[in-house]
Every structure is written in C-alpha cells, then in structure tokens.
C-alpha cells in the first residue's frame, strides 16, 4: 500500500494501480477538506454576523 511496505516494488503495476487509488483518494480527501474548512469558516462568519 505504501512504498515502505515490505511488498512494495517500484514497477508499472504498482505505479498504475496505487497511483490511481491515491489519486482518487486525494481528490475525495481534498474535496472533503475543502468543504469542511469552508463550512467551518462560513459558520463562524455567520456567527459573528449573527444572521442565522
């Protein structure tokens, strides 16, 4: 799973497969972080505006 795992080999299959996986995970993770951070910011802004 990680390059420091015992079985890891720097070959095509690992790069393609794990590349795809980490890419997908990256997008999902980034998207989620973006939403959460933005929501946290917005909700604290909203609070200070007190316009809920």
């Amino acid at each position: 799973m990680f390059p420091f795992c015992f079985e890891w080999v720097w070959d095509m299959s690992h790069i393609v497969f794990m590349g795809g996986l980490w890419y997908a995970l990256g997008i999902v993770g980034a998207g989620l972080t973006y939403c959460i951070v933005k929501a946290a910011k917005e909700s604290s802004d909203n609070h200070s505006n007190g316009d809920h």
Partner: peptide, 24 residues
C-alpha cells in the same frame, strides 16, 4: 446547526467531483 448547513451546501456544490470519482 450552521456548520452542518454550510457543509451540506458546500458538498452539494462540488458533488459532481465526488460523483465523478465515485463513477470512476
């Protein structure tokens, strides 16, 4: 709860990205 409200809204906004990743 404002946080959830916003979170929900934000997620809706970029849902296409999630859906695309999901589809992949």
């Amino acid at each position: 709860k404002p946080f959830f409200h916003h979170l929900s809204h934000n997620m809706h906004e970029i849902m296409a990205i999630f859906a695309a990743t999901g589809a992949f």
